[in-house]
Nucleic acid binder design. Sequence first.
DNA 1: AATTAAATTAAACGCATGTTTAAATCATGC
DNA 2: GCATGATTTAAACATGCGTTTAATTTAATT
Lengths: 208, 208
Amino acid sequence: MAARITTQQKILNAAEALFARDGFEQTSLRQITHEAGVNLASVNYHFGSKKALIQAVIARYLSVFMPALEEQLNEAEAQKDLKTQALFERFKLPLAKLTQINKRGPDTFLRLLGFAYSEIQGHLRKYTQQEYGNVLQHLLQLLKRTNPHLDEQQMFWRLHFVLGSVVFAQVSGQALIEIAQAEFNQQIGAQDVIDQLIPFVSGGLENS
Amino acid sequence: MAARITTQQKILNAAEALFARDGFEQTSLRQITHEAGVNLASVNYHFGSKKALIQAVIARYLSVFMPALEEQLNEAEAQKDLKTQALFERFKLPLAKLTQINKRGPDTFLRLLGFAYSEIQGHLRKYTQQEYGNVLQHLLQLLKRTNPHLDEQQMFWRLHFVLGSVVFAQVSGQALIEIAQAEFNQQIGAQDVIDQLIPFVSGGLENS
DNA sequence: AATTAAATTAAACGCATGTTTAAATCATGC
DNA sequence: GCATGATTTAAACATGCGTTTAATTTAATT
């Protein structure tokens, strides 16, 4: 059991690609298993259910992303004169690290996140909160530091608006990228979208 | 054919409520027809297909909202010293007008819009562009006026981020409102969310 | 090599969906 | 009041889904 790709991995790889492209509900197990070249029943054999497969796909990314983000937040913590935008820039490295899972890992992860938030409402939120709640708390604390003029309620809403922008940018991302490319005659990648996004969410969050 | 509610209207009313609550794909024709107290087959008889029903539901709102928005934009056009935030505030009145369709019309419309954008990817965008493209062009032109420091590409992306925030706020809105109410011990409505949203999108769009 | 456990396979199950059919009912104009 | 067209109805259709079953094949252990 060394370099050969197991059935489990084949399923995970095919599933994450299709989930990221079409969403969870729009992707059937028959599509996934066909793409992976494995039997339909093997999903339920190895993962138990489709829901569990979705969770496994997301968990694989979170397990890389979250620790890297935590490290970045610790560095930000020590930083003097921390600015909101600089804080958001800290997301770029953890995101880039996801290439170790997949060449298009960063794109994939953000799109998965987008679908997860818009499709399975409370489920992922609860899981993330439970597994990585401390990291998110840390982020909130730092944002309060860079934005002492916002009260609890403003911060609550704006954080969710930020999340909404990110999620939307990714879910509608591919379509928008294609429109943008046609309109501006240049190659555009997910990284460019992030670079456009950061000043937007920074400005939105900070605004008095 | 005077004051009595026709089958078509019964279907539209039931459909828009369920669509707004659960999304288009999550709502079955059987749910809709049961709620409306009409026969299952009457949807296909009166509208042709589920897709056409969705379009009819959205079109009913757009036909009220868009002309009202156009009027607001014309007023803004004449305004001296137009600010981005003031421009976004112009959305409130057209939105409020939707109560003439339904008491909870504004909420319903925004949630429908949210689901429309996240579920049926290109379809609605094309329809809106075709039917009300001139209004949206007008909005874009005014935004360029209030933000001359942004180039075409920045404006393109930020406009879509704004849209994303709005859409997300509404789709995740009810869940978030409940969390917020529990956390801050006060009654919160869709209008409050809009009030929180406007400074966010204004700040995000303007940021240099 | 024989035994046992793990993994894979083809097939079927049960269910829910949107849509279509064809008969029954209703309303309308002559 | 009857005939005609519009509407409503109950039932079935076709399809796709996640899941389960039971038999077969593969791999590991003794």
